[in-house]
Design a protein around this nucleic acid. Structure first.
Lengths: 137, 137
DNA sequence: CATAAATACTACCAATAAGTAGCATATAAA
DNA sequence: TTTATATGCTACTTATTGGTAGTATTTATG
């Protein structure tokens, strides 16, 4: 019951970048600040670029930079792109037939958790972070 | 962001058994009702026995039965025993140093989710299930 | 144009979770 | 005491996630 490492990393990286959202960040810099292995981070950055949150600037003096305002990027979008929020929104007991009209024995109980989680992820953007708090490893 | 299959299975099984909590259930019966592979379920049953929720009756006419009232078994205990609730209660960004006194940038936001989840898992026992809802696969 | 400093891509390796197979053990009852 | 019907244990296989290595590509600058 937790995010995948990949989702954790994606959030770490983008939240870190969001403190100074107009800056260009190199992979090297991010690897040093956050505790993510070099190659894995680079691959993740490529994925995040393809998802449209950032774009890469290749060649010397290259790096990564946001493609849009951080207030337009919600945690939901990030987690969804790297691990699929569907995971959360499926039946907690894994019953395929479970739905609101044909709920499982935990459906109503679980709904409170699901709602809270969706709310937090959908309402929180990269601009709403506590940037004075821990951002790096 | 979801339970492991093992936790899903454990909940499925125990919730199913909780409908008639004084009955003895065989692995065969549970395998047929719930969609869990035979050997995997048996191993899980042994784990759940060792954790003290149920006990096994070996030999012919054997099976599994609760060791205590279902109102004494909380979802928290079950999930904790098979996958560790620590997972949820760690920092959402995976920062080891993160704590209430030295929080990460998402700490306060995430706390609402964590609290809701803990509340639901800690307050819901196997006696509080909607037994008229879907229980089987 | 050569070089340095950056990202991109592909293929492989490791760790963990999930699932399978086979044999051992226990016990009620004919 | 044999047999049928249960669970218990150990080792193996498979799938997924996380991580690594090496090479190719891009581009600013002397």
């Amino acid at each position: 019951m937790k995010l995948t490492k990949t989702a954790e990393y994606a959030l770490r990286i983008l939240i870190f970048m969001a403190k100074k959202p107009d800056q260009l960040y190199t992979a090297k810099q991010l690897v040093e600040e956050l505790n993510v292995s070099d190659k894995y981070l680079r691959r993740l950055m490529t994925d995040l670029s393809k998802s449209g949150f950032i774009r890469s600037v290749q060649g010397r003096d290259g790096g990564y930079i946001f493609t849009k305002g951080t207030d337009k990027i919600f945690l939901f979008d990030i987690v969804h792109s790297v691990e699929g929020m569907d995971k959360l929104n499926g039946c907690v007991l894994g019953f395929e037939k479970c739905s609101c009209t044909n709920p499982c024995a935990m459906h109503d109980t679980w709904e409170h958790v699901r709602d809270e989680l969706n709310k937090v992820f959908r309402q929180t953007s990269l601009a709403n972070m506590d940037f004075e708090k821990i951002l790096r490893y």
